[in-house]
Structure formats: structure tokens, C-alpha cells
């Protein structure tokens, strides 16, 4: 890593130039190749305008959860306790893998028996790159958004697609 100030050849990854003590940290900063990448690196979750979270208490039944999901046309509801603390997420995938049963009708049972406890969350200040990584690695379609530890809303994979294709569209014009 050549120091731009004194041309001294430092070890790669050095934070300061060995010779003139100049700050080298900026040189290793990742550089965005295009506007989409820059948006991923710099924009935060707030850019996606998280929708207000639809929540239920753990004492709600599966039937109620299904009704709420239908009414709001959503694929996942969040389960919170009385203080608003996030306990779990109940999604269509839970319906498929746990609730749907040819013999027993589970719809009268508690939603907390079937929810996915302690879901992965993102903060309002996390970058979109972090969100995309979480969605890719975890295979999540929905991520609850927290602000200062409190539940704020939810973002979905569709919001992410919309944001990225929107950036692509503005180029082609």
C-alpha cells in the first residue's frame, strides 16, 4: 500500500503510513461501482419506508392470525407482548409447515405455539446491503424493523426489489 503523501510502501492494510504517519484508512474504503451499489452501501432501512407492523398478542389464536393476514393482505404477522416487545413472527411458511394438517384442525390453538420465535430483525439505521445479505443468507421474505430496540415496522423482499428496480429504471431514461 503506497502512501499517497510520501510514496512509502507500507504493509497492506496499514492504518497509518510508517514513514510519515499519514492516515491511510480512507484508501481502503470500498468504492461503489454504480448507483445501485452506492445505494446499497449508503442508504438505510428507512429509505424503504417500513410499513407499520401488524401485530398480535401471543394469546391470539391461529384463526385470528389468518383473519388478520387476509384483512391486511400480508404474508406475516408479528407477535408482541404487552410492552410491545417482539416475541416472534407468524408467516405463511409456518402455516404450511406446522399448521396445515390433514387430520387435526389447529386453527383454534394459540398462535404462539406455531410462530417462529425470536426472528432476525434489522435496525432502521442498518444499510440496505446488510438487509439484502440477511434476506439472501437467511432466505427471509420479511424482516421486522427495530428503532432503539423498539418495534417500528416491517420490510419485505418486495420493498427491496422495488427499490433496486426503481434505481435501475432511472438510469435507462
Amino acid at each position: 500500500m503506497i502512501c499517497p503523501h510520501c510514496s512509502y510502501d507500507n504493509l497492506p492494510g496499514s492504518e497509518h503510513c510508517e514513514n510519515c504517519l499519514a492516515d491511510l484508512t480512507q484508501l481502503d474504503q470500498p468504492v461503489a461501482q454504480d448507483r445501485v451499489e452506492r445505494s446499497l452501501m449508503e442508504d438505510t432501512v428507512s429509505q424503504l419506508q417500513p410499513r407499520q407492523a401488524i401485530t398480535l398478542r401471543p394469546a391470539a389464536t391461529v384463526k385470528q392470525a389468518i383473519e388478520v393476514m387476509l384483512r391486511h393482505d400480508i404474508g406475516a404477522v408479528l407477535i408482541v407482548d404487552d410492552t410491545g416487545k417482539l416475541l416472534g413472527i407468524f408467516s405463511e411458511r409456518d402455516l404450511l409447515t406446522k399448521v396445515a394438517d390433514p387430520v387435526v384442525d389447529h386453527t383454534a390453538r394459540l398462535v404462539s405455539d406455531f410462530m417462529t420465535p425470536q426472528p432476525t430483525t434489522v435496525r432502521l439505521t442498518d444499510t440496505l446491503a446488510f438487509v439484502l445479505h440477511q434476506m439472501d443468507v437467511g432466505g427471509y421474505r420479511h424482516l421486522p424493523v427495530l428503532q432503539d430496540g423498539r418495534l417500528l415496522g416491517m420490510i419485505s423482499v418486495r420493498d427491496m426489489l422495488r427499490h433496486m428496480t426503481c434505481l435501475c429504471k432511472t438510469y435507462s431514461k
Partner: peptide, 25 residues
């Protein structure tokens, strides 16, 4: 699937996406 699309978008920016820390804070 949309999951495959997400993976396509992620692998499009490997250095940005795959260098994410487990916890950014």
C-alpha cells in the same frame, strides 16, 4: 422464485454484500 432473484442481486455486488458483518453495530 423471488429467493433466487434476491440471490442474483446479492451476488451482483459480491464485495459489498458478502463482506457484511454479522452485526453492523
Amino acid at each position: 422464485s423471488v429467493k433466487r432473484i434476491v440471490h442474483y442481486l446479492a451476488e451482483h455486488f459480491p464485495s459489498t454484500i458478502y463482506n457484511q458483518p454479522p452485526d453492523p453495530n
